[in-house]
């Protein structure tokens, strides 16, 4: 069976003279929650933009369920949903219209839309704000709109970029519960985050990016074994990578 997401020897970035990513390879299987971890500027967002098809790889390729974006643009796009780091909303559309348009763009039927949207609005405590415009939303509420739009679609792959910043504690818990549910129903989630304690609890595997390369990847146990300390927290390992203490990796 094809992995849900397969990134092979990806090099890329914003200018060919100075690529950000070098030879990044990893796979994601159905039902996995993978944490993408790294310092600011390590290449997390760039990786995500490549997966979304917003950037063109210089070399290497990315496949979702076995196809590249060139082979089937619509199918590729349809199989994933994205929650960006900075919520971007239509200033001229209401919350409800955001959900409706997303549902229409991803071919949801009206009944499914109703069920899912009501459930999501309730979960994130936004039922009363259905007719509001984003200008009146705080950062956290905008983030919730992005999350609701993504989870309305129920695609094979979720790409979630630093979702916790600005969310209230209930919002964070709701998001974590949602992700757990989606995992159980077979979806995969790639989540970039700096909140390592949460990541440690919820992610099945980790990819630690450092200066555009994958420093280390695998389950926490595997990384700990490699690190040589079975009690080390993700935080400690991450700091070691960030400080360039990398002799244990080879």
């Amino acid at each position: 069976m094809n992995p849900v997401l397969s990134v092979k020897q990806l090099s890329g970035g914003y200018s060919r003279q100075r690529p950000v990513l070098h030879d990044v390879s990893f796979d994601m299987n159905a039902g996995e929650l993978v944490g993408l971890v790294g310092l600011n500027g390590a290449g997390k967002s760039t990786t995500i933009k490549h997966i979304l098809g917003l950037l063109e790889p210089y070399s290497g390729e990315i496949r979702i369920s076995g196809r590249t974006i060139r082979e089937d643009k619509i199918g590729y796009r349809k199989s994933m949903a994205y929650v960006p780091e900075m919520p971007e909303l239509y200033e001229q559309l209401t919350l409800e219209e955001h959900l409706q348009l997303t549902a229409m763009a991803y071919h949801l039927d009206q009944k499914t839309y109703k069920e899912r949207s009501e459930q999501l609005l309730k979960l994130f405590n936004m039922e009363k704000k259905k007719h509001w415009f984003p200008t009146h939303f705080s950062k956290g509420m905008r983030q919730k709109v992005m999350i609701m739009c993504a989870f309305l679609v129920r695609p094979e792959l979720y790409i979630v970029d630093e979702p916790f910043v600005g969310l209230d504690p209930i919002g964070i818990q709701s998001l974590l519960d949602l992700m757990t549910d989606m995992k159980k129903s077979g979806s995969s989630i790639l989540m970039s985050t700096h909140i390592l304690t949460t990541a440690e609890q919820y992610c099945d595997r980790f990819i630690i990016l450092h200066e555009g390369r994958i420093a280390v990847q695998g389950t926490l146990e595997k990384i700990r074994r490699q690190f040589g300390n079975s009690k080390a927290s993700l935080h400690e390992i991450y700091l070691a990578v960030a400080r360039g203490e990398t002799q244990w990796m080879e």
Binding site: L52, G53, L54, K73, I74, G75, Y76, R77, K78, M80, Y82, V83, P84, E88, L89, Y90, H98, L101, T102, A105, Y106, M146, C149
Partner: peptide, 13 residues
Amino acid sequence: PFPQALAGLYPLA
């Protein structure tokens, strides 16, 4: 400018 995370990624021709 439509939000890229939504309109830019809609699976539409």
